[in-house]
Write a protein that binds this DNA or RNA. Structure first.
Length: 306
DNA sequence: TTCCGACAGTGGGGTCGCAAT
DNA sequence: ATTGCGACCCCACTATCGGAA
């Protein structure tokens, strides 16, 4: 079951959980055996051996949750998790499980001791899950809260990805992106200077953006290809085409070769407003998309705050 | 006839593995 | 040994098309 994106729902028929930035995983435990499955249905048991002792706490259950890798501050790091999720080799998995262990955040219960719970309301499934008393060094059942705004604020303070709102009376619908689950992500908008663009299936595939440095070069912040519809593309072409230049306005060697392939460089004069999730460890924008052009904003006034 | 929802396609940050260079 | 590319993970958004209203 998947969530739709939307504004924070309000009302007594909603409950709120933190949204964990990791990999979705179903844990199927029966007869002392345990398997983990990714959203695609692929078996990912071997990648996370530290979760296998979960079977000692429950003998027959189908659990839904998110595998996360917490940093020292207790915040999930998707970038760090990415280095673990492709691992198939048992020896390598065991070494990583010891040095950078994951945590399984369990939030739903779909089967218990032979009883299929999918048709039961979320509230009931959640009560049964809580009653199992699951908890250990490498897994947890994070709490659900009754207040939406408070949960959202807390997610912001804790540096989490956002909030999941769940309709308490709703059944579990496998594989369905249902409005009974609403994800509300903490996102920000910021202004960035266009230093180049790449042709794609559209005339403008994506923009290469950055923020100005005192020496006049741009500090690279990544590519932005989302949000460029026909109208914005037309505006961008009108502004960018006269600004073409032979040299990259970014710092030397700063744009990865992959990103620079086919790029058309421009004099850094066009400012765009971009919406995005968090930053990656090296400052690049995650899930970026163009909101609009900022013809009113001079490039010199762009900073890296937003 | 118009509107809406599902879906394919395009774009992003990443990692890994394999084949071509 | 390096590079390109697709397959997976996470995703947002746009354009299109067919069916419902």
């Amino acid at each position: 079951m998947l969530a739709v994106t939307g504004p924070l729902p309000a009302g007594a028929d909603w409950a709120y959980e933190f949204k964990w930035d990791g990999v979705r995983a179903l844990a199927d435990i029966s007869a002392g055996r345990q398997e983990l499955y990714a959203r695609s249905g692929v078996r990912i048991t071997a990648a996370y051996p530290e979760l296998l002792t979960l079977a000692e706490q429950v003998d027959d259950a189908l659990l839904d949750g998110e595998v996360v890798l917490l940093n020292q501050a207790g915040q999930p790091s998707f970038t760090a998790l990415a280095e673990r999720m492709h691992v198939r080799d048992a020896t390598k998995a065991a070494r990583l499980a010891a040095s950078v262990p994951v945590t399984y955040m369990i939030f739903d219960l779909l089967r218990l001791r032979g009883a299929d719970l999918i048709g039961r309301p979320w509230r009931e499934r959640r009560e049964l899950l809580d009653a199992l008393g699951l908890g250990g060094a490498r897994w947890a059942v994070p709490p659900a809260f009754p207040g939406g705004p408070a949960t959202y604020d807390a997610a912001g303070e804790l540096g989490l990805e956002g909030v999941m709102a769940k309709r308490v009376g709703a059944a579990y619908r496998p594989g369905v992106r249902s409005p009974d689950w609403v994800k509300v992500k903490l996102e920000v908008t910021g202004d960035f200077v266009v230093g180049g663009w790449r042709p794609g299936a559209r005339r403008i595939g994506g923009l290469l953006v950055g923020v100005p440095r005192p020496d006049g070069t741009l500090a690279y912040r990544g590519r932005v290809g989302g949000g460029i519809g026909a109208a914005i593309e037309r505006e961008l072409l009108r502004e960018l085409e006269p600004l073409g230049t032979a040299n990259s306005p970014f710092g030397r060697g700063e744009v990865p070769r992959e990103d620079a392939r086919g790029a058309m460089w421009v004099t850094p004069r066009v400012v765009v407003e971009v919406k995005y999730g968090q930053r990656t460890p090296d400052g690049r924008l995650r899930f970026p998309r163009v909101l609009r052009l900022r013809p009113d904003k001079p490039p010199e006034e762009v900073d890296d705050a937003g």
